[in-house]
């Protein structure tokens, strides 16, 4: 069964934006591309650079030598080390989409299990302790081994207080949280 992680309030991650989250030791980049959320492992398959911290760019194409088209702006992430281009939406590399891929994860926008999370990202981050919304994550954190967790940890309620105040906040889907399933 996949583990559910609440990453951040959907309202905090607008189109064209991204965040790097530490999900129980696994560094994951979460991107909003034109309103859809996509998650990639922050670990380039080449030399394990923090892929998701690279620049967001578009795709240059050509119908014939010397001609340039620039399309799909914001849908390509360029590895911060060697410049390899990957499609944010699929994890596939541009130069060899069938064999060179970054791992992707399922995402959705859902009601939060912990309604305080949706109020504002920073207190939630501090409280949850394992959600890092900063983009300062380095390859150090790109650990492929998922740490053992308790059931509570996995569902993001262990550090949320003795009795999460579930009745204090009315949430609909548009105001929900971005969720990644590992």
């Amino acid at each position: 069964m996949k583990t559910r992680f609440e990453v951040c309030p959907a309202a905090d991650l607008g189109p064209g934006e991204r965040t790097i989250a530490d999900l129980d030791g696994l560094s994951v980049g979460v991107f909003n591309v034109d309103g859809d959320y996509h998650a990639l492992k922050n670990d380039c398959p080449h030399q394990r650079a923090p892929l998701c911290e690279g620049s967001l760019t578009g795709l240059t194409t050509a119908d014939s030598p010397g001609e340039f088209e620039y399309e799909r702006d914001g849908e390509i992430v360029r590895c911060p080390w060697h410049g390899w281009e990957f499609e944010v939406t699929t994890g596939e590399s541009v130069f060899n989409p069938h064999r060179v891929k970054a791992k992707t994860f399922e995402t959705s926008v859902e009601d939060s299990d912990d309604p305080e999370t949706v109020e504002t990202s920073e207190p939630a981050s501090a409280k949850a302790g394992r959600l890092d919304f900063s983009t300062g994550t380095t390859a150090d954190d790109a650990d492929t081994e998922e740490k053992a967790t308790t059931e509570d940890d996995r569902y993001g309620v262990a550090l949320a207080g003795e009795e999460p105040p579930v009745d204090t906040y009315d949430v609909d889907v548009e105001e929900g949280v971005v969720v990644v399933y590992l």
């Binding site: 650079a49 923090p50 911290e53 690279g54 620049s55 760019t57 360029r78 590895c79 911060p80 080390w81 410049g83 380095t138 390859a139």
Partner: peptide, 10 residues
């Protein structure tokens, strides 16, 4: 010109 720049961006 290098489209990705000349440095490790991180």
């Amino acid at each position: 010109r290098n489209p990705g720049g000349y440095f490790k961006d991180d």
